[in-house]
Every structure is written in structure tokens, then in C-alpha cells.
Amino acid sequence: MEIDIDQIIYWEWGFLKLNATLLFSWLVMLFMVGISIMITRKLTSKTGMSRGQALLESLVVLIEDQIEEATGEKAEKYLPFISTLFLFIVVSNTISVIPGFHAPTASLSTTAAFALCVFVAVPVYGISSAGLKNYLRFYIEPTPLMLPFNIIGELSRTLALAIRLFGNIMSGSLIVAILLSLTPLFFPVVMQAFGLLIGVIQAYVFAILALVYVASAGRIREQKDQSESNNNSYNHQTT
């Protein structure tokens, strides 16, 4: 019983190696890109569109709606990053129901890599929307004393993000594996279905959390603007 799919190695040459995580990641990527190309090849802006286009469009609209709901901003900026995360995780989690397939997200390396991406994306988005100075000022507010706590908060939430996804997906596979050894018939099927649900929910949770973190950085400027305008109005009243 292998829990860590990083350890399933198909090919190795010195430093380079091809393990299950990478192989299935590539398969998932290939699948996603293939589907995208297939559908977007015959896109039309007219009314009579294909079913695939309708599905993709409604998916994109759904994600956009979610993003706008969570951030209160235009979805365009966050859409590629958040939806790539979401779609990759969803597809990865769901292919695990196919026998012989391993979910790349069951590897801590993958989830950690995604978490790092989010970790990097937060300041990138923050700086792009608020500017470097304003973004950095956020860490020393309300007082410079808060700097270490802010940094720790930033790190810990990223770590939590990685562990949460990894734990859930890995545990799903693990539970199935354990139950399979106990009751070989029927029950694992139910657990597989359950695992499917959990996989989708986890993808949603991961994406939403990533979005919230990224958007919170983008909101710094807005808060600042708001407080400034409040101060101005207060000044006007007092004078």
C-alpha cells in the first residue's frame, strides 16, 4: 500500500525522475488542453453554438460569478489563475475514480506547489493593484510591531491551504484503500462516490480560499482610499 504517490517512480535518470504525480499531472493537463482546443476551435459569437461551448461558457460564467461574489471586483483579473487552479484540482480529483489512476493532488508536493503559487500570487496581485509601497505598508499596519505577525499569518495560511487539500484528497484515497481491505464489495463504491463529492468540494474550497487571499491583497488600496475619504469628510465637517 503506497500512500505517497511521489514514490511511485516509472523512470529515473540521475536527478530527473518521472513519478506518478508528474505523469498524471501531465495526463490531466493534456486532457484539459485537448478538450479546450477541441471546443474552442469552433467557437462562435452567434446564437447557434455547440453544446461543448455552452458548457464551457456556463462554467466560465459560474466561476466569474463566484469570483465577483467573493471579491466584489471584476472577475477578469483573477479568472485565469483561480479557474486554472479549480479546474486542475477538480479534474485531478475526479480522475481518481478511474481504476489505476492516481490523483496528482494526493501528493503533498503538488498541493504545496499550488500553495506556493498562491503565496506568490498574493503579493503579485496586491502590488499590481495597490502599488509596491502601499502593499508593503500593509505589513506594518496598524503598527510596525505587527510585522512579524502579519508575515506569520501570511505563511501559515498558505501552509494550511496546502495541507488541507493534500489531507483531504489523500485521506479520501486512503479511506477507500482501507475500506477495500475490510469490505471488498459495494461499500468502496459508495466511498468512491463520496470521494468524488469531497474532491469537488475541496477544489472549490481551495479555489475560493486562494481567491480570498489574493483578493484581500487587492483590497488594501480600497480600504486605504475609503479611510482617506472618511477622514476627508470628517475634516470637512469639523471645519
Partner: peptide
């Protein structure tokens, strides 16, 4: 190695999508 490869994979996927 997998960690860094996955980051690269993710960036490639982001670009492709």
C-alpha cells in the same frame, strides 16, 4: 523535484489554458 516540476507544470497549464 516534484514540487518544482509541479510549479512549472502549473504555470505551463495556466499559460496553455
Amino acid at each position: 523535484f516534484t514540487f518544482s516540476a509541479q510549479i512549472i507544470n502549473f504555470l505551463i497549464l495556466l499559460w496553455l489554458l
